[in-house]
């Protein structure tokens, strides 16, 4: 899975950019991609080249990006499975009994697959070049509602602890020979989940008390806003500019 903030070590141009321009740039890029009519196949090739350029600039390993791209496979496969059952108007490409794939259908598949790959790819570049705290700060600076920002931030902070707690409970159960083989042993698992919920709940209460003790009154600023540098602006101009130029040429019926 693409975990934003899985950014590791390597500090190069893309990593150092302000999270805000990366968020705006890559989300904007995805929006432009999604609005491009699927017939303009060459446009998608150019979008892909733009992303290849960015990934190379960030020195991301193609394998790392490729592995993360696999998350979209289930969605694309679902579209592919249902295609033969709907019969969009158009020339029949393949026919097998009552099932047939038309060229309209194939276009729908191409449309979904290409856009899913490109927009996810952009998000992967964002995730691999931005640490989670930076990402959350960026979203906060971009005026994402406080509740969502805090939820994200707490999720990142406590997911690992939650995992550790559940692992230690699993170990405690295994140490007492709990090794569920039949249905009758399942209830213990339910109780473990219940206990895990209660633990998380009381941790939540303790964290809240710790917050209130330091003067929390319902709102707070995470970080001061930083000033954008020339490289940040250059990145925004590049990514949004590239997307816009390609899209405008498509709209004008170019090529």
């Amino acid at each position: 899975m693409t975990v934003p903030g899985s950014a590791v070590g390597g500090l190069n141009l893309l990593h150092r950019l302000d999270a805000r321009v990366k968020i705006v740039g890559l989300v904007g890029f995805a929006v432009v991609v999604v609005t491009t009519p699927p017939q303009a196949a060459w446009a998608f090739v150019l979008y892909a080249l733009t992303l290849v350029f960015l990934a190379a600039l960030a020195r991301l390993s193609p394998l790392a990006v490729g592995k993360r791209l696999l998350v979209i496979v289930p969605f694309v496969v679902v579209v592919a499975i249902f295609l033969p059952f709907f019969h969009p108007e158009g020339r029949v490409l393949v026919e097998w009994g009552p099932l047939r794939v038309t060229d309209r259908g194939a276009l729908i598949f191409w449309n979904t697959a290409a856009k899913a790959v490109l927009s996810t790819w952009g998000m992967i570049i964002l995730g691999l070049t931005t640490s989670f705290p930076e990402l959350v700060n960026g979203l906060s600076d971009l005026r994402m509602p406080r509740v969502f920002v805090l939820t994200l931030s707490f999720m990142h902070r406590y997911s690992r602890l939650f995992l550790e707690e559940s692992q230690s409970m699993r170990r405690a159960m295994a140490s007492r020979n709990y090794n569920p083989r039949w249905l009758g042993q399942v209830p213990a698992l339910g109780k473990m989940l219940g206990a895990l919920f209660l633990r998380s709940y009381s941790r939540g209460e303790r964290v809240y008390v710790a917050m209130v003790s330091r003067g929390y009154e319902g709102t707070f600023a995470l970080n001061g806003r930083r000033r954008l540098r020339a490289t940040d602006l250059a990145f925004a101009v590049f990514i949004l500019g590239a997307a816009a130029v390609i899209r405008i040429v498509v709209a004008a019926g170019g090529f």
Binding site: F132, V136, F154, Y158, R206, V209, A210, L222
Partner: peptide
């Protein structure tokens, strides 16, 4: 508090230490 995990709830050390003064 006894458990520092309860007291350090933000992304980075700096943010956690800044939380009180910011409030």
């Amino acid at each position: 508090f006894q458990d520092p995990e309860d007291q350090l709830f933000l992304g980075t050390v700096g943010q956690d230490v800044a939380f009180g003064p910011a409030n």
